[in-house]
Simulated assay, not measured.
Amino acid sequence: MSNMGYTDYNTFLMFGDSITEFAFNQFPDSSSRVPQFSLGSALQNVYTRKLQVLHRGFSGYTSRDALPLAKSILNEEFDKQPDSKKIKIAYVFFGTNDARLRGLSSENNEHIPLENYLENMVLVIKEFNDRNIPVIVITPGLHDQNLWNIQYPQDLVTGDYRTNENNKLYQDKLTEKINNSGYKNAYILPLYNIMIDWIEKNGSEMAKNGDYSEILSDGIHFTGLGYEILYDAIMNIINTKIKSFSPIFMHMQFPHRITLRDHTFDQINN
């Protein structure tokens, strides 16, 4: 303990686009005040007194934007930090915007061609790999075009919409690319497949018939249940493949309450 204080915490980094930005929102249904499952809160809860959660989500961002951000975040939150405060595990979740089709809209700066997306993601993951940080690489998930069309019908007119076919293509190619990259600390989470599997096993008849409103709030962003599916998938990877950062095996920060005495904290570094 001589090189750290009890106040030092290592970090779990959540890094992605709007699905990550909204990960602490308990009210994805703006018409209801009934709180829903929150991915960010669930991660912080399961890592209470073990890791702090660093929330870095950026609405509308793509893999193109992720690379400079990854370098900046890791420089500040890893390179410049003592070992007791460094990022120790992360997820990276980009691709939902990249997979948007290129239409006629001049405002669509999200579409990233598949090959560029793959190149960007390899370079992003390399930043983590070079620092020996285990990283869960989350692929694009399921899309409900009917839900999205209700809110953004102009995308159909201009052709700047998303499709499940393209989301799955980006998932499959990213999975192949990362698995062939040789990065030992990169773990693919094939979200599209996981969501489909969940629907087949647990979904309502409505979901099995192509209405995904129980897991997607607007066709892209998640309901609480959608986030819960993602959380379960993240924790499954950690508990089975990155066991040193499984909450089950990590020690809590700060002494147990029954050991507290008048001078317990005399050794904290000031």
Rank of each mutant, 00 (worst) to 15 (best):
Q145C: 11
N269I: 10
D17P: 04
F94R: 01
F249P: 02
Q253P: 05
F27N: 10
Q267F: 13
L39E: 09
R64F: 09
I242E: 02
I178A: 00
N270D: 13
M250C: 04
I125G: 04
E21S: 08
F249C: 09
Q81I: 07
F22G: 07
Q26I: 09
V92Y: 06
Y161S: 09
N202I: 02
Q52H: 13
R257Y: 07
L51A: 05
P68I: 11
N97D: 05
S213L: 06
Y9F: 15
S18F: 07
F22N: 15
H221Y: 04
K168D: 12
D155K: 14
F37C: 06
P113T: 04
K243P: 06
K201Q: 13
F249W: 12
K50N: 00
S59K: 10
V135M: 05
I138G: 00
S32I: 13
V46W: 05
N109K: 11
N236S: 11
N120A: 04
S181D: 03
I87G: 00
V92T: 09
S41I: 07
G203Y: 01
D160E: 02
D144Y: 10
F265A: 11
L67H: 04
Q154F: 12
N179L: 07
M206W: 11
S244R: 12
Y9K: 15
N25K: 12
D83E: 14
N10H: 08
Y183I: 02
V53S: 00
R49I: 06
F78W: 15
Q81F: 01
M195Q: 10
N10F: 15
K85E: 12
N116D: 14
K241A: 02
F37Q: 00
L51S: 04
S18Q: 04
P82D: 05
T62F: 05
G224H: 03
M250K: 00
